[in-house]
Structures are given as C-alpha cells and as structure tokens.
Design a protein around this nucleic acid. Structure first.
Length: 400
DNA sequence: AGGTATTCACATGAAACTATTCTCTGAGTTAGG
DNA sequence: TAACTCAGAGAATAGTTTCATGTGAATACCTGT
C-alpha cells in the first residue's frame, strides 16, 4: 500500500520532461508548415477564387503517407476560413477522412457524414441512399454557400465502393441553384486516378499537386521544431533526432512516423526513470511501435481472421515458407478443435491477401508448374512479437 | 532433342446470400373526451 | 378521436458462400531426326 503511494508521490514530484506532449500527437497542427511553402502557395492559388464565391477548379493532391498533405490542406483551409469570416463570405469547408471505419467508408456513410457536418442529423441506417442524397442536396442548397469538400484517403474509398459516389458529387453542381461544391481529393496512391471512370477523372482532377517525400535533413528540422515545443531543454540526447530522421527517410520520408517514434521514445524514457532520451530508447520505441501496429491490426479483426493468422503462426517455426493449402489445412484443424465453423478456401485466400496488405505476412504468388499456382507465404514480423501475438490470439480464440 | 499440350492448385471476380442493425409505416390498441 | 404500441417491410453493411473463369510453368506427350 505504502509502496504504491510512494510511487505516485514520486511520480508527481519528479517533473516530466514533456512540456507539451500534444505537439507530438498526430492531431497536432503546427503554426507554420515548413518545407511545404511551394505546395501550399500553389493550392492557395487554385482555391483562392472561392473567396470571391467563384467555384475553384477541383484539386487533387498526391503523395506518400506522412508527407504533409493533410496538414498543408488543413492549413490552407483554415486561413481561408478566417479570411472568409472576416469578410462575411459564405464559405464553408468540410474535411472528411474516408478511411475512418464506421464514419465515412461507404457511400451512405460519407453522405451522412456530410449532412452531419452541415449540422443536421441522419440515422446511421434504414434510409435509402438516394433519399440521403436528396436531403443533402436540399440542405446544401438552403445554406447557399460555397463548399470546399476535402476527401482524405480518397483512394481507400473508391477501392472499396467504386467511383460512383465521386461522380454523383461532381454532378451535384449542376443541380444546385444557390450553392456550389468544390472537391479536393487527397490520395496516398500516386496512380490512383488511372483506374477511375474517365468522366470522374476529368472533372475531379482539374488541378493536381504532388507532394514529394521529405529528405532526411528536412525531417530533422521538422523534428527539432517539434521537439523544442514538446520536451524540456537538454532532455534530448544529441543524435536521437538524427537517427529518428534517418530512419523515417529510409521509409519514404514519413514524418508522421518519425514524430510518433519520438513521442514513444520519450514515453519509454520517462517510464524507465531516465533524465534524458537516449538512442537506446529510440530503438526500443521502434520495436514497440511496430509491435503495437501489428497487434492492433490483429485484434481488431474478426475471429475467423485471427484463426487464419494463428495457423500461420503455428506453421512458421517449422518452415520459412509455406503455401495456401498448408495454411488452410492447419486452419481447418483449428476450427474443428475450437468448434467453430470452417470458412471456404476462397475466403481464406482473401484473408491471406489482407494479411499481406497489413504487412503481417509476405505473400508472393508463384507458380510451381505442374504442381499448381499458389501464394508463397512467409511471416513478416519479429520473433518477439510472434510470441506475444500468439498469446493474445490463443486467448481471443479460446484455445488452451 | 525440341516443341506442344496438359494439368495442377490455387488466384481472382462477380453475384448472391445471411445475419444484424436500424428506420418508417400503418394497423390495432388504448385512454380520454 | 388522438396518441401510443408494435409487428412487418425495407435498407445498409459485414462477412461470407457459390459459381465461374483465369493462369504460369513443370511435366507428359508427341514428333521427326
């Protein structure tokens, strides 16, 4: 009893070396966006007509994850909103992330979310989709404003439900009397528009901006800027920022990851009772971030999915690589043992593809000639994670 | 030997089905006038 | 008669099944030398 109280006392007394941890969270929007001035200016040029209530060209933004796309767009939009407010311009901006599960990842939910943003409530299900459209039209027209609609991770949306939604959204303008809508799409996928309906493509990507990855030096600068705000002076050992940046630069310049890494390193250092953040903590953070990612992905999946993953884990210590059929056999066994029903091989094949996407396995389709065509599967995660993951899955699946 | 043709073991696609969650509608019921 | 309840029809969605078609190359099967 005393021990734990002491712990809390000490915890309070020993002031944290975080000044403001929020700065390192992905939701943080910094005052200034550095190394993106060019792109921001270009976007501003394209969107500026909106302030005169003229519909700007629709805009498409490409770039890998963590290259500042979302941040830059948000930055531009907030300043536009400020100006609009000062000058009583009826400009509205809506930002929607299409990847968010149960928020905007289907046609119905996307429109429902839009209606929500305009300040109206809509039931989560039960209504026909075209009725939702009608409500949206009416609502938007009533507002008589210019709407700048940002669809983040738009590639995820079209991959899942096709491009009909986008077509409908671009067509809206011809139906509206008092309002206009301007689409701004953000995509991680550089060849996204290739497999789009040509009608949609032409009306959606009138203008395009490409965000190149940051290089290591730029990442360093960005990290330092944040670190100054987040940590007390002198808590960050030299070399930590450099290593963090180098690591991110290797991974196509993903700053978000780098910042995340820095935060986790800080947390680990704090918990271990150290006064400074060492490179050692960074290494540990790297492992933890990776492990968390995998474990999160796995636990959020349905039972059957977990069963497939579990059979792969069982199979992997014996052999470096194996094939779909072998996984399926083991999986069938597990299901029978766990008394759950067995999925078809067709479905398992899809699950394997998903596991590949999540980066938990490496699957390559190979042909073994006379002996068929199949996926060559290898586990892509660290040994230490495997044990942990195995435990979690066993518990979740109710296996002894 | 050299060239086709087969054939395996899945992959990949499309459509359709199932269970669940939710709304809306309208018939039947209730309570009050 | 107005308000209330409650079953049933209809939607959206996730997860899956069914049916159909595709596919790369190691082997089997020819062919002519």
């Amino acid at each position: 009893m005393m021990g734990i109280t002491n712990f809390f006392e000490n915890f309070l007394k020993k002031d944290s070396f975080f000044i403001n941890k929020k700065v390192l969270l992905p939701t943080y929007v910094p005052e200034a966006v550095i190394y993106r001035e060019e792109q921001i200016q270009e976007a501003a040029n394209i969107l500026a007509p909106a302030l005169r209530m003229e519909k700007p060209s629709s805009l498409f933004i490409y770039g890998k994850t963590g290259t500042g796309k979302t941040l830059s767009v948000k930055h531009v939009l907030t300043s536009m909103c400020d100006v609009a407010k000062n000058n009583q311009i009826r400009l509205k901006t809506v930002y929607i992330n299409c990847k968010l599960k149960r928020v905007a990842d289907t046609e119905y939910r996307l429109i429902a979310q839009l209606i929500n943003e305009l300040g109206e409530d809509i039931p989560p299900t039960g209504l026909p989709t075209d009725e939702v459209y009608t409500i949206f039209y009416a609502l938007l027209d009533k507002k008589s404003c210019l709407l700048l609609l940002v669809l983040d991770e738009i590639d995820q949306l079209t991959k899942k439900i096709g491009d009909e939604v986008l077509y409908n959204l671009t067509r809206i303008n011809t139906e509206l009397k008092n309002s206009q809508i301007c689409l701004i799409g953000i995509s991680n996928n550089l060849v996204f528009s290739e497999n789009l309906d040509p009608r949609v493509k032409s009306s959606l990507s009138e203008e395009e901006i490409i965000f190149p990855p940051y290089n290591a030096l730029q990442i360093q600068d960005i990290l330092r800027k944040r670190a100054v705000l987040a940590f007390k002076e002198g808590t960050l050992k030299t070399g930590v920022v450099e290593k963090c940046a180098a690591f991110a630069a290797r991974e196509h310049g993903d700053v978000r990851r780098a910042i995340d890494l820095l935060r986790v390193a800080g947390e680990i250092a704090e918990r271990s009772g150290s006064d400074t953040i060492e490179i050692m903590h960074l290494d540990e953070a790297e492992k933890k971030v990776e492990a968390d990612k995998v474990i999160n992905a796995a636990t959020n999946q349905p039972k059957q999915f977990q069963a497939v993953l579990y059979s792969i884990l069982l199979l992997s210590p014996q052999r470096k690589q194996f094939f779909t059929g072998e996984v399926y056999d083991i999986y069938t066994n597990i299901c029978q043992r766990g008394n759950s029903n067995v999925l078809t091989q067709r479905r398992v094949s899809d699950i394997l593809a998903e596991l590949d996407m999540l980066g938990i396995i490496n699957a390559k389709i190979i042909s073994k000639g006379r002996y068929g065509r199949t996926r060559e599967i290898a586990l892509a995660i660290d040994e230490t994670i495997v044990l942990k993951l195995k435990e979690i899955l066993e518990k979740s699946l109710g296996l002894g």
